[in-house]
Amino acid sequence: MSGTRLDLTSITVTAPDPRALAGFYARLLGAAVAVSEPPRDGEPAEAGFAQVRAGALTVNFEYERHWQAPVWPAEPGRTHATQHLDIRVDDLDLAVAHAVEQGARLADVQPQDDVRVLFDPAGHPFCLFL
């Protein structure tokens, strides 16, 4: 393509409590919650919007009224993850322990020796890798 520039700058993750999930990722990544907006009129208290800036990437967290946590690995007929975050780490064991301290849980299925699949508090899978 020529004539214009396209830069990927952010990803938006839906969640049942976006501000709480942003807090989890901010703690996990040692970043700050850059934006935190309250629910709109008529929305429940856990609604709203939040944003975490981690290096060059911004992760937005947006309220999803009909949230269903994905199943990973995928199973027929169940909600499955359509994307996940990959986070590079220096020490896999220390990073897993840190993630669990922040509220993540380790997945039962671990398909690779140098990668750990975890779930954030809302149930999204994410990977820590060397």
Results as ranks from 00 to 15, higher is better:
Pro39Val: 00
Tyr63Phe: 15
Glu43Ala: 00
His66Gly: 12
Ile87Lys: 14
Val96Met: 00
Ala31Ser: 13
Ala22Met: 05
Leu92Gly: 00
Ser36Tyr: 10
Ala97His: 10
Glu101Met: 09
Gly42Trp: 12
Gly42Arg: 13
Ala34Ile: 02
Thr14Phe: 12
Arg27Tyr: 00
Leu57Phe: 06
Ala74Arg: 11
Thr14Asn: 06
Cys127Gly: 03
Tyr25Ser: 03
Asp41Thr: 14
Leu6Phe: 13
Phe119Trp: 02
Val71Gly: 05
Pro44Cys: 10
Ala97Leu: 02
Gln102Lys: 08
Phe129Asp: 06
Pro125Met: 12
Ala45Ile: 14
Gly3Tyr: 09
Pro73Glu: 08
Arg27Cys: 01
Arg53Trp: 00
Gly77Gln: 11
Glu101Asn: 11
Leu29Arg: 03
Gly48Thr: 13
Ala20Ile: 07
Val52Pro: 03
Ser10Leu: 12
Glu64Leu: 06
Leu92Glu: 06
Leu8Glu: 13
Pro44His: 10
Pro76Cys: 01
Asp114Leu: 12
Val109His: 09
Glu64Cys: 07
Leu92Ala: 00
Leu106Pro: 09
Ala81Arg: 06
Asp93Arg: 02
Ser10Arg: 12
Gln51Val: 09
Val35Ser: 11
Gln110Gly: 02
Trp72Tyr: 13
Thr82Tyr: 10
Leu8Tyr: 15
Gln102Met: 15
Asp7Ile: 04
Asp90Phe: 03
Arg88Thr: 10
Val96Asn: 01
Arg65Lys: 15
Ala22Pro: 02
Pro70Val: 02
Pro76Tyr: 07
Pro76Ser: 15
Leu21Thr: 00
Val52Arg: 12
Phe24Ser: 14
Ala99Asp: 00
Thr4Ser: 04
Arg5Trp: 08
Gly23Met: 03
Ala122His: 07
Gly23Ala: 04
Val59Tyr: 06
Ala56Ile: 09
Leu57Arg: 04
Pro76Asp: 15
Ala15Leu: 00
Asp41Ile: 07
Ser36Leu: 13
Gln110Lys: 09
Thr58Arg: 04
Gly48Met: 10
Thr12Arg: 13
Val59Ser: 05
Thr9Asp: 15
Val13Arg: 01
Ala47Met: 06
Pro111Glu: 01
Tyr63Ala: 11
Pro111Tyr: 08
Pro18Ala: 13
Ala54Phe: 06
Leu85Gly: 08
Ala32Thr: 11
Ala99Ser: 04
His98Asn: 12
Asp91Cys: 11
Leu57Gln: 01
Gly23Trp: 00
Gly23Pro: 08
Pro44Leu: 03
Gly77Ala: 04
Arg116Ile: 05
Gln51Glu: 09
Glu62Ala: 14
Ala20Asp: 10
Asp114Gly: 02
Val117Glu: 07
Tyr63Trp: 15
Ala95Asp: 02
Val89Ala: 12
Arg19His: 07
Glu62Asn: 14
Thr82Trp: 04
Val117Met: 11
Gly103Phe: 04
Arg78Leu: 05
Gly3Cys: 00
Ala104Cys: 08
Arg88Tyr: 04
Glu101Leu: 05
Val71Asp: 03
Ser2Trp: 05
Pro38Ser: 14
Gln102Leu: 00
Asp91Lys: 06
Tyr63Glu: 06
Asp93Lys: 06
His84Leu: 08
